[in-house]
Amino acid sequence: MTTLDTPRPPADEAPAPIAGKTPAWLLQGEMAMCPCGCIGKRKKGSFVEKTLDGSAGLLRQVMFGEDIAERPGLLQRIDPRAKLLSLIILLIAAAVVRNIVVLLVAYAFTLVVAYFSAVPVGFFIKRVWLFVPIFTGIVVLPATLSFITPGEIVIPLWTWQGQPVGITSQGLTAAGLIVSRVALSISLVVLLTLTTPWVELLAALRSLGVPKMFVLIVGMAYRYIFLLLGSVTDMYESRRARTVGAVKHDKAAREFVSSTAGALLGKSHALSEEVHQAMIARGFRGDVKALKTFAFTRADAFYMLVVVIAAAVIVLGDQQLGR
């Protein structure tokens, strides 16, 4: 049991922000932190250190999200099930649209909704754009060339084997389409998660037919990520305390990652045994029972109506404007 006592939650040092009193520094920086971050630039210092630093940012980001979710605002008043359903409807609408103008207008609307939902608009824009859409933009740039997307060349660049090579209008449209669609889709998801407390989001998933067992596992995983993160940080710090100089280098850090995975799994396994006992001790027999019940109000029905109309306008407008 002693092995599980050591991790200290970072929350001990940093008290949770009180609703509405989030300091300005919380609204900036660290927002580029992305737990996937499949591609990114390397800076000095080992990546392990950066990931662990990032984890503190992750924690802040999550807490800040919970903070916004408790503010009074437009979306905060809506039933989470209605929000989840409308997210899916709007995402599908965004996915079928083929006109950049329609996508951009819809994106502008997300900014308005964010404003009325007590989400700081500057923060919202950064949070949405900093990672995926900008990355997407860079990645699709070469796709505007006639090599990849053949078509009508609007900016000729050079000729190759007698054929003109350049940026095609089809390529530009395609790049614009994907970047604006990605930005709109991410905005919709971020709006939902910023204005809905995590617990309610889980309850909404459950009441929309996601198996209870699956939702229970998601909730518990969420809870233990932060605990295990604390363990990893402790392991890293105790290792750094015993190593001179070497940890700066990525090679040593790589060794750390593979040996940590083993220790982490062992620790996790022991933890899960104990959690299992704690659940059994309070009468868990494999059947999940939820506390939260929702009441679908008239406001929710109205909201759903608005969403459906908005989705219809998006799709019809798109067809009117041509493809």
Binding site: D5, G219, Y222, R223, L271, V275, Q277
Partner: peptide, 10 residues
């Protein structure tokens, strides 16, 4: 170990 006992999201 309270961490094992407190396993719910809230």
């Amino acid at each position: 170990n309270s961490d094992a006992q407190v396993f719910s999201p809230s």
